[in-house]
Design a protein around this nucleic acid. Structure first.
Lengths: 226, 226
DNA sequence: ATCAAATGTCGCCGAGCGGCGACATCGATC
DNA sequence: GATCGATGTCGCCGCTCGGCGACATTTGAT
């Protein structure tokens, strides 16, 4: 939730943060930085909650409690705002990297991929914004979604890279292709579950359903990577 | 009266080119049956070409070259029309079942699933309408999409059932869960390719890209089913 | 105190949407 | 020919959307 690295300005050095831990929600005095954050947060929350269908200038402004004109002024419209969301996705990597990763004794590439698969599954299940973005990616091909997609793809690649460490896939296996399919499977399973509570006849609601899915996923990973 | 308009256009709509809707020169005189068909075909074509985003009464009426009032009269609105599309999906099964299936010598469940996976992959790649519906399913959870989803799910299940024949999965493997994951992977791969030409860093444009993907998919299926 | 810039607000525009009532036209039947 | 139901057409309604011009208020430097 920390993203001072906006492309626009570094506003006024003194930030009258009011310092109250729980500031009164109503009166937001003229503070561009705060307004920008409010807009960005509103956009992310709106996208996460409602999906891309009803994602627009009016809705974001409503949710942020400000005039839509400010979105044009501060972000240059929806496109800029989407870019800001994309930039924010970089933090996803940091939040999802357990620091003790190195401590684990992942002996084989199979161990690694089994672990990563389950981690990614869980991460997606826990992250509605990311889910909505993935759904958006497979539903449209506009400039907006293309930028978001690129940011997400980069974040994912970085994450994989860092988690991989020095392990290398077994010879004779096209790891890029296989992993792409595994990632696709995980993404679609989670999306299907989120949308309809099932996927191809497999119920995905109760936690025992998910245990089944995880078991199957492990089997698949182990089958291909040993 | 079947499938002459099932697969129009290429599988990769880059930009919703506003090509002239080009009404067919055929002059429809007052013929309710023909009008109903025209509406249904327009709806399917529109959904296949433009996706669910711009799918609405006005757009369908425009494409069908008739007044939207007729959609209300004949189908009871968009919901009824969507139901009609769903009912039409039943034909999907018939079109996708090679009659010589029984003649094939599929020795093992692994043989079967490898074959089915590739067949399903190809079928989805060739069927823009089905792709759009899958994308819709993971993006919304409205009554409309729920009905469509059910029809598609049933069609898919029927297809799998018929193709399976008498083969049974190996013991100790949760075939339902594993197959759900395989189907999820295929669907997501195809959707990603259609939308962005790649998936998780794996390019999916040229046919050699797809050969890679198919190879990896086969490996995965063989890994889990032997 | 003054004033210009930064910040926030209001309301309009043209367009498209779903929905529907009212009307026009045709064709079969009497 | 007159009638009446089936079929097709027209235009309106209320709403939301994205976009933006014009205005109001506050702040900070002079």
């Amino acid at each position: 939730m920390k993203s001072e690295s906006l492309m626009l300005n570094d506003p006024m050095p003194l930030t009258p943060i009011a310092s109250a831990p729980q500031a009164e929600p109503e009166k937001r005095v003229r503070d561009r930085g705060a307004t920008e954050k409010a807009i960005l947060n509103a956009a992310k929350a709106l996208l996460a909650e409602e999906g891309f269908q009803n994602f627009g200038i009016n809705a974001v402004a409503r949710k942020a409690g400000c005039d839509k004109q400010l979105i044009y002024r501060y972000y240059g419209g929806l496109n800029g705002l989407v870019d800001a969301i994309g930039a924010d996705l970089g933090t996803w990597v940091k939040d999802r990297i357990p620091e003790d990763t190195g401590g684990m004794f992942l002996l084989t590439y199979g161990d690694l991929m089994e672990r990563l698969s389950l981690l990614f599954l869980q991460a997606l299940r826990d992250d509605p914004l990311m889910r909505r973005i993935v759904a958006w990616e497979v539903s449209e091909n506009t400039e907006q979604v293309r930028r978001l997609s690129e940011a997400r793809s980069k974040a994912l690649a970085t994450w994989l890279e860092r988690m991989r460490g020095s392990l290398t896939p077994p010879k004779g296996v096209d790891a890029v292709a296989v992993n792409a399919i595994l990632i696709a499977a995980i993404q679609h399973i989670v999306l299907s579950a989120s949308a309809g509570g099932q996927c191809a006849g497999l119920a995905l609601k109760a936690s025992k359903d998910w245990e089944k899915a995880e078991q199957a996923l492990k089997r698949i990973v182990r089958g291909v990577y040993g």
